[in-house]
């Protein structure tokens, strides 16, 4: 009895220390995660030349909107923003419709080529032709230097399809059967019966695709390098970034010093504009991400 009591007391002190340390760790984790983003926000509102002195952390020293003005008057950034919004909207819609349709087909119990069609797509997760053959293919199909390269090639993906399929498999077959007795065709079942039930998983996949579209820059760099009217926000941001880092920025710094705008501060403003939509929608949509991540983890 004595021993047990002693043991209990010991663990509770240990517990206290543990909770304390764990709390400290979590606070440190949150700070490390948020600080860089907040610091960028602060820099974007701070006078550029003033920021060169350093020492700006969580509050601007010399407020200005100049940085945002500079960014918002750059033509290529405006073009980039328009194209990015367009590709996100169109790309997400296309991807959602096609992935949902494919998932619907392979989740029909009676479908004749259920297994073969699933396998056909799962293979694409592991084997791909690589950059060069893909590049030549897109060139051959006339997709280079066009808007289509943003939305068509990545439209269907095995991962997204599997996420939707897992969800659809959980819907009872009796719904489909009773609808069929009422004379509904497959398209009616897909649009009127299954899809309304799949709203949560559709939201998840739409979000995955939308974030991917919003963040992509590689396709703009590789396939549409020659078309400045098809540039994207992230690609423009990348060009801003590399112009700062590669040339040391010193010449540009001096040139812009009078205007109180430096490449660093402009970059901060552009970064904030780019992440703004994600950060603003994030608190409302984050639960869908979690759903998708857990659904996607289920193996075949």
């Amino acid at each position: 009895m004595k021993l047990l009591k002693k043991n209990k007391k010991k663990t509770s002190l240990g517990d206290k220390i543990f909770y304390f340390c764990n709390g400290i760790f979590m606070i440190a984790f949150v700070i490390i995660t948020l600080y860089p983003v907040l610091n960028t926000l602060v820099l974007s509102f701070n006078d550029g030349t003033d920021a060169l002195r350093g020492g700006i952390h969580l509050w601007p020293r010399k407020w200005t909107l100049k940085n945002f003005e500079t960014v918002l008057t750059k033509d290529n950034l405006i073009t980039g923003a328009i194209i990015t919004v367009a590709r996100t909207a169109i790309g997400t819609l296309l991807a959602l419709v096609t992935n949902a349709l494919l998932a619907f087909i392979v989740s029909r119990k009676r479908f004749l080529f259920k297994r073969q069609l699933s396998l056909f797509w799962v293979i694409t997760m592991y084997v791909n032709g690589g950059l060069i053959p893909t590049f030549l293919l897109f060139k051959g199909l006339g997709l280079t230097n066009s808007f289509g390269v943003y939305v068509i090639p990545g439209m269907l993906s095995a991962f997204n399809m599997l996420v939707i399929r897992t969800f659809m498999n959980g819907i009872p077959d009796s719904l489909e059967e009773s609808a069929q007795l009422d004379g509904a065709g497959y398209m009616t079942i897909f649009l009127r019966i299954i899809s309304p039930l799949c709203k949560p998983v559709y939201a998840t996949v739409a979000l995955f695709v939308a974030v991917g579209q919003w963040n992509s820059w590689f396709d703009a760099m590789i396939y549409n390098r020659m078309r400045s009217d098809l540039t994207t926000l992230q690609y423009e941001l990348m060009k801003l970034l590399s112009s700062v880092t590669n040339q040391g920025g010193s010449v540009e710094n001096l040139k812009n010093a009078a205007g109180a705008v430096t490449p660093t501060s402009v970059r901060a403003a552009a970064t904030i504009i780019t992440i703004l939509p994600i950060v603003m929608l994030y608190p409302f949509l984050q639960r869908y991400f979690v759903t998708g991540m857990t659904l996607g983890g289920v193996k075949e």
């Binding site: 004749l112 053959p133 439209m155 065709g185």
Partner: peptide
């Protein structure tokens, strides 16, 4: 009975062959 499903899966397979399997021929 499944002609609708087959029609769409045919289109989807064509898409898959072009964008995922054709590049393999480039090897």
């Amino acid at each position: 009975r499944q002609k609708v499903l087959l029609f769409w899966s045919f289109l989807i397979v064509v898409y898959g062959v072009v964008f995922y399997y054709l590049p393999l021929a480039g090897w």
